[in-house]
Write a protein that binds this DNA or RNA. Structure first.
Length: 300
DNA sequence: TTCCAGGGGTAGA
DNA sequence: TCTACCCATGGA
């Protein structure tokens, strides 16, 4: 097994642990979290086809650095090492600028967000495709169900790390498209979501959907939202969640978790309408999602 | 059994 | 735009 360490510089006041643990993605395969270190693990397939296992940890110091330990069956060429760097920067949002959000947080004195210095970044997958499939797997299902569906996707359709078949990457669009909707349904327990995931994968493979166009920072969020809602299986909640994963925080993802959290904090346990939830976070402008996420965090 | 989960599609008004 | 009904699956 070939192993190499890569150093990456996080932005100032970056909180590695808070970023990794900010939401549920860390509990979904092929992510792993190791309390020793601590280290964030992930297995992924690079565009060239190589499967790599990554471990990311933080070295204290000033400034702190992140160490990425890469394992692969064979030595990776320089361009693939660069691809690993870019993917880790995406996953950990190392290039996202939250200065304005932090400034707003300081000026909104009546709000008490559960947010430490350098927090506010929510873990992402190495690719938008994986983020979208994860999101589809959170709709109308318990969190245990989400974990089970994602685990089966990885175990049945993901490419293994050579020599370590227990370590598998998230399946590619091509692998899911090839499997077909029926096999997907049979083996993953995605139920009616199988058709949505399969159609997404097929349309990407056949060039009808270009996910890269959604990652264009020049495009307004309203336009991205319209494109996301055109994907079968993506409604208001999923579109807002995917926009968050794209670094766009304008829209609230109002789901049973947020409704319950807002009811606990502002309604003495009594339900609060979605319109009132929207009105509550309206003052946060283009940072609404983050304000809501860190204002009314999960209790579990 | 029934309900519902980090909802969404569709038909019909 | 709004509502009712349906959608697989599994745990409570």
């Amino acid at each position: 097994m070939w192993v190499q360490e890569i150093q990456e510089a996080p932005p100032p006041a970056y909180d590695f642990v808070a970023t990794a643990r900010a939401h549920g993605w860390i509990a979904l395969q092929p992510f792993t979290w190791h309390t020793d270190g601590p280290r964030l693990g992930h297995v992924q397939r690079l565009s060239g086809g190589s499967v790599v296992a990554l471990q990311v940890g933080e070295q204290s110091g000033s400034p702190a650095t992140l160490t990425i330990t890469v394992q692969a069956a064979h030595e990776l060429p320089a361009d693939q090492i660069d691809a690993v760097r870019r993917r880790v920067r995406r996953m950990l949002r190392l290039d996202e600028d939250l200065t304005e959000f932090y400034r707003m947080q300081r000026s909104m004195e009546k709000w008490t967000l559960s947010l430490g210095p350098g927090g506010g970044r929510l873990l992402r997958c190495p690719t938008l495709f994986e983020d979208i499939v994860y999101t589809l797997c959170t709709t109308n299902v318990t969190w245990a169900g989400t974990k089970r569906m994602v685990e089966r996707l990885v175990q049945h359709l993901g490419d293994p790390l050579p020599g370590r078949p227990e370590l598998r990457a998230f399946p590619t669009p091509a692998a899911i498209a090839r499997a077909g909707a029926e096999r997907l349904r049979r083996e993953t327990g995605l139920g009616y979501r199988s058709a949505y995931v399969w159609e997404l994968a097929r349309d990407i493979v056949e060039g009808r959907i270009d996910l890269g166009a959604l990652e264009d920072p020049r495009r307004p969020a309203s336009e991205l939202r319209r494109d996301l809602l055109a994907l079968r299986g993506v409604g208001d909640y999923a579109a807002a969640t995917i926009l968050m994963l794209l670094g766009r925080y304008e829209h609230l993802a109002i789901d049973s978790e947020l409704r319950a959290a807002v009811a606990r904090k502002y309604g003495a346990g009594e339900p609060i309408s979605d319109d009132r939830i929207r009105a509550l976070y309206e003052p946060w402008g283009r940072w609404r999602y983050l304000a809501a996420w860190f204002d009314a965090p999960e209790t579990g």
